[in-house]
Design a protein around this nucleic acid. Structure first.
Lengths: 189, 189
DNA sequence: GGTTTATGAATGAAGG
DNA sequence: CCTTCATTCATAAACC
């Protein structure tokens, strides 16, 4: 449907210049970015509002099932029961979560709270990675040589300041504040 | 802000076919609608409960100038433009990225940022695998509202906003990692 | 309630 | 291809 690619053909059929093509692509990409961010914002605000009205869920021993529907939790949080079972299995069968096991586990854990197979996959992967890393760099010592390859703390810190230490800065250019632009997006044009 | 609309004028300066124009206008109109709705909702929500500190909102990715030179980026990250092109191709030619196509693509995408053929291979493989897995089990949220299995989270949000998007257009909205290329916002002025 | 930490999730890349 | 690992991002929970 989109014949945008044909701009490189050196024939008289060309209907768009490269510049025009580039411009259009950029504009569409911009909309994609804006929409994505707005949706994120919307989700965040909605969930915040929801939380503000209903109060916070109990911290440790609460079962999510007792909580309200909320808007939809963006992130799964294991219940203590689920966590216990998971860690027990992790201790037993180190590093070999077969798919069948996952399915089986999902069913079992579903009785203790909402859960999906993907959650379990993620959990095991994260758990293993974390376990591995713990062995590598011990807690002590001032062995902090590089900031980019390995420093989640840094990331978190800058995150709050609205600044991100971004490794992929090669073609990165300039950031923007969505709020500044939201004002202008009245779509009147 | 969008000067695209003036191209429907029936003057000899027209450089786009009606079909192209129509397609682009459709896409942009969709984005405009989505953005408008989102902005409205955002404003409403903000005025209701913001001011309490602004919350966290979305994190803003910032200033590359503060970023160090780094040694080098270890991992390729597609620019929005690259991602857009890739997803468009993925949507068109499902599951058949020939070798020659890869080479051709590499050249094209190189104009939008650093990229290698291997990156494209990986991207397609990963993308397909992810697509497949999506059909298997609803990931993330534990509540599966539609049995189709083809519902990116964006979709439900848009439905929430009363905005409909054609499957054909979804891939444009689906773009997630849009960290840079914000410089492009200048051209709307 | 503002900040930090812990950890679930996303994804590029490698291995088989 | 399909599976697995490594890295990074985003956010719920915890801390102060």
């Amino acid at each position: 449907m989109m014949e945008l690619d044909n701009q490189q053909q050196p024939n008289p059929m060309k209907v768009m210049t490269d510049e025009q093509l580039e411009t259009l692509r950029k504009q569409i990409a911009i909309y994609a970015t804006i929409c994505e961010r707005l949706v994120e914002m919307h989700k965040t605000l909605t969930s915040q509002q929801d939380l503000a009205g209903g109060g916070r869920m109990v911290s440790l021993y609460a079962d999510p099932s007792i909580g309200h529907k909320m808007t939809a939790r963006q992130r799964w949080t294991p219940t203590p029961m689920q966590l216990q079972i998971l860690e027990r299995l992790f201790d037993q069968d180190t590093g070999t979560p077969s798919k069948q096991k996952i399915k089986d586990l999902t069913e079992e854990l579903s009785q203790h709270g909402q859960i999906a197979e993907q959650n379990i996959c993620n959990w095991f992967q994260n758990r293993r990675a974390r376990s591995k890393r713990k062995q590598h760099c011990g807690v002590g010592s001032s062995n902090n040589k590089n900031g980019e390859g390995e420093s989640p703390e840094m990331s978190s810190d800058l995150h709050l300041l609205g600044v991100q230490s971004n490794p992929r800065d090669e073609h990165l250019v300039e950031s923007y504040n969505l709020y500044d632009h939201v004002e202008d997006y009245d779509m009147s044009g």
